[in-house]
Nucleic acid binder design. Structure first.
Lengths: 206, 206
DNA sequence: TGGGTATCTTGACAGTGTCAAGACAGTATC
DNA sequence: GATACTGTCTTGACACTGTCAAGATACCCA
């Protein structure tokens, strides 16, 4: 029986996720319709419903993949040796992650899932795990011991993530920022943070 | 002739904008369909097309209203007397603006218009004017004269707006932040900014 | 009074997500 | 090996969307 004509696809679940990622990247969220996706997978309109409860569930699974990528990216980060330089490196890595697949970032952090849709428990868990890992960076040396007195690491994590997120959104949506500004602006943001945290003053211990 | 039965509405343009704002606030962008809007205005499905080129144009007009509100909000701000305290006040005002009508904020700064849609020239002008006004705060006293050497006011404006925007988005989309965190986190962000700009150290002149 | 124009209408089309009901195939049970 | 079961896939249908084309209505100005 030919590959395309057999009744049971065999690996539709994985195929859907894979093709959805391609479609997302190429056409954006708005261009990702279940019907187009099904057609691309060589299957009827409603076949996907046997593998995902609905479109929301499929998008959640897709976003989950993104968060896993982001998590490994954060695992690779090392602020220990040189906090100031490490911070700058991390910010650049984050923005690169967002720019390399803007539609994936939009899906991960956009309202489609978090506001309009219903985030899966599984997605919520992974997304929070990702943020948890970021918070840990604040609670661990070298940052923890250097924070100005009275500064709550959790609040710092939230505020600094907001900056990262805001930069990404303004850039990706093309409002007030474009790719040309990016390096200068992100450096500016990092400088502000470094200055605010007094990180630059005692890198070698003081 | 009764109000509801007359052929010509008489003030459909204004009515559409008004009702669209209500629908937007109550149902969100996803709930704002031209057909529902038309029904609400007591008019046929395609009547709005005689006043707005398409849905995109109507949404742009709606967003424009939002930017005008934001602009007047910024005009009221005064950083002159006490820059640190003024900054804090402005941040709170911005976040209040975003929280009071989340769907309007989403429309103003979301991808619906800037990425997926085609922002009107008029919208672009007003939106940029809004940002222009923000930049001016950085270029004028008291901030301009206090910025650390080598710090570009434009970059500072972009970076700090990104923080404001990021806080708003995380809050409104309900990811990593909720209303309870908001005051602490925004204060944290402001503290960071004040420390980074060395604003707190010479409020009374030094 | 007449014609032009702005406004509003109905009809239609392609597209969407999703439900219901039925067709098919592989798997476990007797 | 036949039978029942279950997971997978299909077609048909529905309500909803934005938008175009063509025709109806009412206002305004010559």
């Amino acid at each position: 029986m030919s590959q395309s004509a057999r009744y049971h696809h065999g690996d539709l679940h994985a195929t859907l996720l894979r093709e959805a990622a391609v479609l997302l990247r190429e056409q954006g969220i708005e261009g990702l319709s279940l019907r187009r996706l099904a057609e691309r997978a060589g299957v009827s309109r409603t076949a996907p419903y046997h593998h995902f409860a609905d479109k929301n569930a499929l998008l959640c699974a897709l976003a989950e993949q993104g968060f896993r990528k982001l998590e490994t990216l954060m695992q690779e980060e090392d602020l220990e040796s040189e906090p100031a330089r490490g911070l700058r490196r991390f910010v650049h890595a984050y923005l690169r992650f967002a720019s390399q697949d803007p539609e994936q970032y939009e899906l991960m952090f956009g309202r489609t899932l978090w506001k309009t849709g219903r985030p899966t428990k599984s997605l919520t868990r992974v997304a929070h795990g990702c943020f948890r890992r970021y918070i840990d960076l604040m609670y661990r040396p070298p940052l923890a011991s250097r924070l100005p007195p009275g500064m709550d690491p959790l609040r710092l994590a939230q505020a600094s993530w907001a900056t990262l997120h805001g930069l990404s959104r303004l850039l990706l949506d093309g409002i007030y920022l474009d790719q040309n500004d990016m390096e200068a602006v992100s450096d500016q943001a990092v400088d502000l943070m470094i200055a605010g945290l007094r990180l630059g003053e005692d890198v070698t211990g003081g």
